[in-house]
Every structure is written in structure tokens, then in C-alpha cells.
Design a protein around this nucleic acid. Structure first.
Lengths: 190, 190
DNA sequence: TCGATTGTCTAGCGGTGCTAGGATTGCCGC
DNA sequence: GCGGCAATCCTAGCACCGCTAGACAATCGA
């Protein structure tokens, strides 16, 4: 039985190797450069091996995205340690933007590209729901009591808009912190 | 001389035909379906003809996007006829979201995909600057007088975030109008 | 030890953006 | 009217893409 276990362990390792390599490659050269051929070469296996782990390129993207959600949740949790209030909301927003700018390819896999993950459904993976939950817990105080979800969604959308427009070169990056402050003021005022 | 003029006219017509066909194809089947082969077949020319008009696929995207900016400007101008105030801002926001949902592929060409157009520079094409100008003119009243630009950019980013997250399936579409109202309230209050 | 199963690779399919080079067209000066 | 020439367009092909069928080797169980 030990042989079987070893094989499963090796297979799991290779699975993780694929995900890590895809992420590295995407972060250094962009997702366009993450082709099955290049990826296979990096992990030193042939392309078909990739398809014995994932249904296709999209599923690899989804696996990378899932990693991202776990990391984002951790980062947001760490930023939300302080007392409830405007300062914490600002810290959450800064953390979110920081995560996106530090891991652009990862962020794309999570929110911009088609990763096949279900959003806003009961089948939504746990790491994904948790990240949203952290935001909701610390923003609910400022929302209309009947609709905390709507408020968080709107705030999240605003952050996401800032991220995407900035990185696509639609907004100059220099004033990003100022836009962020302005946004937090608007959402947390009163 | 008339012959030369006719040729130039025909060439301009074909140029426009390419742009229109690309847009139609994208709107009906998505930008992934807009390949040089399909596009060439639709306009009943061979692929190399496309490259005598545009440097490549990206430049075709840019041409379509430019059309979009002109149309968006027109739509926003029409929506801004009324008196300054919350109602007009709400109308502008609704118009923006409506434009994006009615022309998803066009919107992608303008704001999500890589179209090669320069943003926020002196060389930014006029139709693009105008669209932003309409928003600025009607939002300036609510901004900090020193930084009207920042305010408009943040508002625009929030709208853009709503659009992209909704169409990517990250936010359920049903409550989009409610999120929009919430957003306008936050930006226009006080 | 031998058959069956599992795992991996080679080779190839139809598709992509893009381009070199030949063929054809139609204009112009004679 | 006609030959030379330039502009125009198309055929054919490059290297690459995601993905897969089928051959082959290695390993396992009887």
C-alpha cells in the first residue's frame, strides 16, 4: 500500500508544481505567455500530462485563482485586526489595492479572466466566500441595515474598477492613493 | 484625378467596412471569434487586405473603440440635458451602465481589451477626452474644488467596476440598478 | 513469469496572427 | 491602340496555439 501512497503523493506534488509554475510564468511574462507547451517544458513533462491533472488551461487558471483568494483573505484578515472604524476600512481598501498591484497576474486570474469558478452561488468555493465575508464584516456598520450585501458589493466594485483601470493604463497610477482615499471618504462618511 | 479620388473613396469605404464588420462579429460572437480569417471572409477579401489598412488586430480593436467613444459621448450628452443636480448625475450613471450592457463587446474594446490607444496623455484622441469631459462637467459641483479630476476618475472607476464584475458573472445582474443607486447616493450626497 | 493496467510521450489535428512573393489588374505615356 | 509599369490582391506558408489519439514502456497482481 505504501507504493500507492507514494504515487499519490508524487502526483499531488506535480499538481502543485503545475499551479506554481503557471503562476510564476504568468507573473513574470503575463498570462498570454502561459501556453501549454511552455508550461510543460518548465515542469519537464510533456503537454498531455497537464491534461491528466486539469481539464484544460481554464482549470489551471482556476486553481491559481483559488490560491489567490486564500492569500487575499489572509491579507484582509491581517489588515482588519484593529478596532472597527474608518481607519480599518481604509486599511482594508489599501490592502486590497496593494494585493492587486503586487500580484497583477494573480489578480487577473481571480477577477478578470475566465477561470470557470462560480461566483455568488451556493457552490462558490469557500476561499472565495471568505474573502468577501471579511469585507462584509467590517463594512456592515456603514451600510443600510437592510442591504449590507449591496453596500459591500458596490464598494468592492469601486475598488476593482480602480485596480483594472489603473493597470490597463486608463488612469495614471501616481494618484491612485488619492483616489482610494476619496473613495473611502465617500463610502464611510456620515 | 477623378480616378485617384474614386480609389481613395473606395479604400475609405473598405476601411469602414472592416471596422463595422469587426464590431458586428464581436457583438454577436465575442471578440475571440473575431479572427483575421473570419473577418476577411466576411468582407470578401483575403487576410492580407486587412493588414493594408491596419497594422494588426489590435489596431482594428482601436478603431472600433474610437467609434465607441464617440457614441458614448453622444449618449452622455443627451442624458445631461437636464438641470444640474442629483437627478442628472443618476441619469449619466444609468446611461453609462446602459451603454455598457447594450454594447458589451464595444465596451470591452474601449476599456478592457488592449486597443493601443493612449489614455490620460496629451496625445489621447479627442473622442476619448470628450467622453470624460462630459462626466467632469456635470460632476464637478460635487467634487472638492481643488481636485475635480480625481473625483470624476473615482466615480468612473466605480461605474467601470460594476460593469465588469457584473458581466463577468462576479456580481448577480438583478440588483445592478440598486447598486447603481447606492453608488450615486454615496458620491452625490451632501 | 506473464498478462493487464497504468503512466507517459510522440505526433498530429485544426485553429491563430501575420507575411513573403507571385499573379493579375488597370493606369499612363507613347 | 498599345506596351510598360505600378499598384493591388491573393495563394501559400511560417511559427505558434489548445488539445488529443494512439504507440510505447513501466509497473503491478495473479
Amino acid at each position: 500500500m505504501s507504493v500507492r501512497e507514494r504515487k499519490e503523493r508524487e502526483r499531488a506534488n506535480r499538481h502543485q508544481l503545475i499551479v506554481c509554475t503557471a503562476r510564476e510564468l504568468a507573473e513574470s511574462d503575463g498570462w498570454d505567455a502561459v501556453t501549454t507547451r511552455r508550461l510543460a517544458e518548465r515542469i519537464e513533462y510533456s503537454q498531455p500530462v497537464l491534461y491528466s491533472h486539469f481539464r484544460g488551461k481554464r482549470e489551471i487558471l482556476g486553481a491559481v485563482a483559488l490560491e489567490g483568494f486564500a492569500e487575499l483573505t489572509g491579507a484582509l484578515r491581517a489588515a482588519a485586526k484593529g478596532p472597527a472604524g474608518r481607519g480599518t476600512v481604509a486599511a482594508l481598501a489599501r490592502t486590497y489595492i496593494g494585493f492587486a498591484t503586487d500580484n497583477p497576474a494573480l489578480y487577473d486570474a481571480m477577477f478578470s479572466l475566465d477561470n470557470g469558478l462560480p461566483f455568488a452561488e451556493e457552490s462558490t468555493p469557500a476561499p472565495l466566500q471568505e474573502a468577501f465575508g471579511v469585507l462584509r464584516d467590517h463594512l456592515a456598520d456603514y451600510a443600510h441595515p437592510d442591504e449590507p450585501g449591496l453596500f459591500v458589493e458596490a464598494f468592492w466594485a469601486a475598488l476593482h474598477g480602480l485596480v483594472t483601470l489603473t493597470r490597463a493604463g486608463r488612469l495614471p497610477a501616481e494618484r491612485l492613493p488619492d483616489r482610494l482615499t476619496l473613495l473611502v471618504d465617500r463610502f464611510v462618511s456620515r
